[in-house]
Amino acid sequence: MSIDIAYPAFCAPGLPVALGTARRLMEFGRYEDSKVDVFTELCSVAEVRRMARELPQGRFSGQWDDKEFDGVPLKHWPPLVAGVLGPDLPTAPAAYEGRLPVEYELGDLPVDSIEDAFAAAIGPNMGWINWKWLYWPDVPERNLHGESTHAEVTLLFNTRTRNDGRRQCGPSMGGLQADVLHMDLTSVFPRLNGPPDLLQYSSEDSNHLSPW
């Protein structure tokens, strides 16, 4: 069994450069079955409701303790704990007590179907866009075979890693203004002559896009 290892690759201070760079890297490994997932943690009821207005098709799930519903059938769980779509979110403020941050997610979507709308909607919240089911091509001259097991590209928002375990609300959640590209460098860059050959970013972009 193998374990995925992804590394922060680039850091950009704004969405246009970050999203454009992520897409160039993704296109390097994209094929017909590639998909995209999006995820964010919403730290206030106001942000939950705003996201529900802007992207109501996602699933919202509140926090809960492992022992909170021991022996309770799923059908009797509070809707926000079981997970609901935007139009079904509870309206009573009491339903959100102890449930923040609320997780929002959409998965297994076609590439280019959600990325722009999600990037515009995420605001100060921690989250990511993850392109998966990619395929890094063969490079015979470097003795590299095609690889898909770890072929993913992730664009992070307001966090340094997908697995930082913070799960808290407060100033730190929105403190990072950089957008970070996260990926398995050991699979991708040996297939290139270095990142610039693939990215082909403009001179203006290169002033802002920096290696991590």
Results as ranks from 00 to 15, higher is better:
173 M>N: 09
142 R>T: 02
100 L>P: 06
15 L>E: 14
28 F>H: 09
114 I>S: 00
173 M>W: 14
96 Y>Q: 12
201 Y>C: 14
210 S>R: 15
169 C>D: 12
210 S>F: 08
97 E>N: 02
115 E>R: 01
179 D>M: 15
206 S>V: 00
2 S>I: 15
129 I>D: 01
160 R>D: 13
135 Y>Q: 15
135 Y>A: 09
115 E>P: 06
103 E>M: 09
84 V>R: 01
127 G>C: 11
91 T>A: 15
113 S>Q: 04
66 D>T: 02
95 A>Y: 06
23 R>P: 06
97 E>M: 03
19 L>I: 11
18 A>T: 04
96 Y>H: 11
24 R>Q: 15
23 R>V: 07
163 N>V: 08
194 G>D: 07
34 S>C: 05
72 V>M: 03
139 V>P: 01
122 I>S: 01
200 Q>V: 00
23 R>G: 05
108 D>V: 08
200 Q>N: 09
211 P>G: 08
51 M>I: 12
149 T>I: 05
154 T>Y: 05
143 N>R: 06
197 D>V: 09
104 Y>L: 13
16 P>Q: 06
94 A>P: 04
158 N>M: 05
189 F>R: 05
77 W>A: 12
179 D>T: 05
172 S>N: 03
51 M>A: 07
175 G>I: 05
120 A>Y: 02
30 R>G: 01
84 V>C: 15
40 T>E: 03
184 D>W: 03
